[in-house]
């Protein structure tokens, strides 16, 4: 883990309000596992104050790692305006990443919106034609083109809420359609996206007894396990047991989390 002023190699829009930023750090590239994140300070002033957490979205060569982000507030707005050659304060890599699938397993990756970010890095690392990647968006304009990430010949399926591209409906319907049939016990699912989507993935994989890891997003202050601000409820017989997304996660076995009364 390092805390450094890190040079921006590129920062460009890849979809409306969605940006891909490349940052130069051999140390982060060397240490990063898919699912891990970095904390980045947007701007130099005390407002906005806190760093923002971003999943590492991909690595390029030995020196450059990427973050993929959507402009949702002031912090990301500032980030979207910084230009190549400038530096940002970056802390990372942080957190617990994905456990890789075993060689004989059939991995399904399920992404919702900007939740695709850590899953691209995962797909890069798995690097197998055996992988099926499912990406859901609200509208076709939001689609992040996968070609730029030098992924292998994996199957990529798109779903849009409004039917403007790919399957018309939530991405979880694509997953559901693939959970029956032969080789059931070899399937394994990796997911990241909005909470309702993850809840559905949790239900589907739970019903089919399929191993599933999810990456969660929360507000964070430190990213180091010190502030305890990023609590999520654990699936525990005792009430009020919490995990901390920055340290225990952001990747969790879906069965260890509380998904509401079911």
């Amino acid at each position: 883990m390092i805390d450094r002023e890190t040079k921006i190699i590129f920062n460009r829009a890849v979809a409306p309000d969605t940006f891909l930023m490349g940052l130069w750090s051999r140390e982060i590239v060397a240490g990063a596992r898919p699912g891990q994140f970095v904390m980045i300070k947007a701007g130099l002033s005390a407002d906005p104050l806190l760093r923002r957490p971003f999943s590492i979205c991909a690595i390029q060569g030995n020196d450059v790692f990427c973050i993929l982000y959507r402009v949702v507030g002031r912090g990301t707005k500032i980030l979207s305006r910084v230009t190549e050659g400038n530096r940002l304060s970056v802390l990372g890599p942080l957190g617990r990443g994905f456990d890789f699938p075993k060689a004989d397993q059939k991995p399904f990756i399920v992404a919702g919106g900007i939740g695709i970010a850590p899953l691209i890095f995962l797909a890069q690392a798995i690097n197998s034609d055996n992988l099926t990647f499912m990406a859901g968006y609200r509208h076709k304009d939001e689609i992040v083109a996968m070609e730029k990430f030098s992924l292998s010949g994996m199957e990529i399926n798109i779903a849009t809420d409004d039917g403007t591209a790919g399957h018309h409906g939530p991405v979880t319907e694509l997953l559901e359609a693939r959970l029956d049939g032969p080789d059931e016990d070899r399937r394994v699912v990796f997911a990241c996206g909005p909470l309702p989507m993850l809840e559905r993935v949790a239900d589907l994989t739970n019903d089919s007894c399929i191993p599933c890891q999810v990456s969660l997003e929360t507000t964070m202050a430190c990213g180091l396990g010190a502030c305890l601000g990023c609590a999520v409820k654990a699936a525990s017989k005792e009430t009020d047991v919490y995990y901390h997304v920055c340290k225990d996660g952001p990747v969790f076995d879906v069965k260890t989390l509380y998904w509401g009364a079911r």
Binding site: P48, L49, L50, T218, T219, G229, C230, A231, V232, D240
Partner: peptide, 12 residues
């Protein structure tokens, strides 16, 4: 174990 989330929010 502390309070339920969300536990933090940024303000000016």
């Amino acid at each position: 174990s502390g309070n339920p989330p969300p536990r933090i929010v940024e303000t000016p």
